[in-house]
């Protein structure tokens, strides 16, 4: 019996030790740095990812409203998180521990880095360490965008360091209110040209404009830009609250109802007032 209690005590104690134990990250992993620049766009990508995959346990950053688990998940904006190097955070997200899931196969490396970019957006002192691209020289990418009405295709001409080049990744999206609708993904041909289909049935705004996001990528070098292009049919957008309906606001009540109501009320109250005034003249009647 005594041994039994002792065992429980030991297990409990051991649990405590595990909880308090540092989550050690191999040194070479901790030194890893992001090849992607933590720019605003990248931070926003991370924020969206965070809301979908992390909020349920870690809560909203800066609010310290993470779930009361043991070990505590912690708040990404806290000192405990921010004091760790980027590589350590990257490793922990990838590998997981205990309740923390393994994200290695769920999130791409780029996505994990965007999460870290989001965490760092809460730290004003943070300076992103430079990634050593080694021999690889980041090309300076530029592109021109046009629309060929005859074949309903977007034409993207890409220049890498001022030269056309074959095999550069080009993707295009229609920018919707909440997300990007992919038009397609292709590579440039030997003339540096990439063609992307645009569905002619896509509705534009009232002027027929569509916001097109084009993204060009060669290695770690990424260039993207959003352009408003007049490539769709101008849409006939009718307001949902046009006209006079029974459900419209009071000032847009149907005319027939307004007239009927007022006629009845004025009619009846006219007679009532006529009688009331008549009564006050009762005294004078002989």
């Amino acid at each position: 019996m005594k041994n039994y209690i002792l065992l429980i005590f030991f297990v409990l104690n051991f649990g405590f030790v595990v909880n308090a134990q540092e989550w050690t990250v191999p040194a070479e992993e901790a030194e890893k740095v992001s090849p992607y620049i933590f720019e605003d766009d990248f931070v926003t990508d991370g924020e969206i990812l965070y809301e979908n995959s992390c909020t349920s346990c870690h809560g909203t950053p800066t609010e310290n409203n993470f779930m009361p688990f043991s070990p505590p998940p912690g708040d990404p904006a806290s000192e405990q998180f921010q004091s760790q190097p980027d590589g350590a955070l990257f490793y922990k997200i990838q590998k997981g521990r205990g309740i923390m899931p393994v994200f290695e196969n769920i999130l791409a490396e780029e996505e994990i880095w965007s999460l870290i970019a989001y965490f760092r957006s809460f730290n004003k002192e943070y300076v992103q360490p430079e990634f050593d691209y080694g021999d690889e020289v980041l090309s300076e990418l530029k592109f021109d965008l046009d629309f060929d009405e005859n074949i309903d295709k977007l034409v993207v001409k890409v220049f890498s360091d001022g030269e056309v080049e074959e095999g550069i990744d080009v993707s295009a999206f229609v920018v919707g209110m909440f997300g990007k609708f992919p038009l397609g993904k292709t590579k440039t041909n030997e003339l540096g040209l990439a063609y992307l289909d645009v569905d002619p049935s896509l509705p534009g705004d009232k002027q027929g404009n569509l916001d097109i996001l084009v993204r060009v990528r060669k290695g770690y070098a990424i260039e993207k830009a959003t352009t408003s292009m007049k490539i769709a049919e101008p849409a006939q957008q009718t307001s949902l609250i046009e006209g006079r309906h029974l459900w419209s606001t009071g000032d847009k009540a149907p005319v027939w109802l307004l007239v009927t109501f007022l006629l009845i009320v004025v009619g009846i109250w006219g007679v009532i007032l006529y009688i009331i005034f008549g009564l006050f003249r009762l005294k004078k009647i002989g």
Binding site: T249, G250, A253, L258, V265, W269
Partner: peptide
């Protein structure tokens, strides 16, 4: 008061 609502009719007619 919104005259599409039966409540407004009801109140008008009750007072009357």
């Amino acid at each position: 008061g919104r005259i599409q609502s039966p409540i407004v009719w009801d109140i008008t007619i009750v007072i009357t």
